[in-house]
């Protein structure tokens, strides 16, 4: 990284720098008050014992030591979360890009199809969870009903500890692909048409065009989806809370759920903050790796 003086000493660069600071100033000021503020407050709380009813008591690293060395549920939740993210992210990216390519065309009724694919995104997680509880129902669920003629099941989608997490993955992918489709779609719209025109003159196959134009052009968008997906899947909470409560046998206890449980069911906000910052360390590292890896030489 270049030093401050590199920018300051050159009149043009200085001007650009000061303008840029002005551009980001509203975001920065806002973030200091409402993003960094709560974040650092919570960092402080991770070194305390705090039940929200009485003032926090500083206890140094005790929470960290306890969580990392003497808390089997934390490790279980971390393993579950990692597995969940590893299943959700690739599926989500592949399917949403496929959908974006599918609906990126001016055919009659395309607005309708786009809207249908986007529906799950805007339906509240409460409603979605309840519909899927019904779809997955052991007795009368639609999925078991469809499988019955094939002599499969009935399957206990959410009650079997070996299956529950995967069932939640399927639901999350269904709910999430519409959103990433929209981002990919906007990304596709940003690719200049002349690139394709040039490739067509060269007689490139559709697959060739995808590999050499579409995919590389979408790289910034893919980075965005990957990083944002990592951040959100690692914090997954809503459907766990509404559908499985972390069970059966802790098989769907995610870190996000654990944090909620410690904070607002056990009133152990200090410990919840500790878990949150360990999670932060993991997500931050993954995001930096993602950026470096995918950004390549940039």
């Amino acid at each position: 990284m270049r030093g401050f003086l590199y920018y300051w000493k050159n009149k043009g660069r200085r001007r650009t720098m000061l303008t840029a600071y002005l551009f980001i100033a509203p975001v920065l000021i806002y973030a200091i008050a409402f993003n960094f503020g709560p974040m650092f407050a919570s960092l402080y709380l991770s070194f305390t014992r705090y039940n929200m009813l009485t003032p926090p008591q500083f206890i140094g690293l005790a929470n960290y030591v306890r969580v990392l060395t003497d808390d089997p549920v934390f490790w279980t939740s971390l393993k579950n979360t990692a597995q969940y993210a590893l299943e959700v992210l690739p599926l989500n990216i592949a399917i949403s890009l496929g959908l974006a390519l599918l609906v990126n065309r001016a055919v009659r009724g395309i607005a309708f199809f786009r809207a249908v694919y986007y529906l799950p995104v805007v339906t509240s997680i409460i409603a979605v969870s309840m519909i899927w509880l019904w779809l997955y129902d052991y007795n009368i669920g639609l999925i078991n009903l469809i499988l019955e003629p094939f002599r499969i099941g009935p399957i206990d989608w959410l009650g079997d500890p070996r299956l529950a997490l995967h069932s939640l993955v399927i639901m999350r992918v269904w709910k999430g692909v519409g959103w990433n489709m929209v981002i990919y779609l906007a990304g596709l719209q940003g690719i200049p048409l002349y690139l394709y025109e040039a490739a067509e003159i060269d007689g490139a196959s559709p697959w060739r065009k995808f590999l050499s134009i579409t995919w590389p052009s979408l790289r910034p968008v893919t980075i965005y989806i990957l990083i944002m997906g990592t951040i959100s899947t690692f914090q997954t909470f809503g459907e766990i809370y509404a559908m499985t409560g972390g069970g059966p046998l802790d098989s769907t206890t995610t870190v996000g759920f654990l944090i909620y449980q410690r904070a607002f069911q056990y009133y152990s906000m200090g410990e919840a903050s500790t878990v949150a910052f360990i999670l932060f360390g993991i997500i931050f590292t993954l995001s930096v790796v993602n950026m470096k890896f995918f950004q390549g030489t940039e």
Binding site: V27, G256, F264, A272, A276, I283, F284
Partner: peptide
């Protein structure tokens, strides 16, 4: 800035 999004809302 991005880091601030990595702390779950509950804390």
């Amino acid at each position: 800035l991005l880091g601030t999004m990595m702390i779950p809302i509950h804390v």
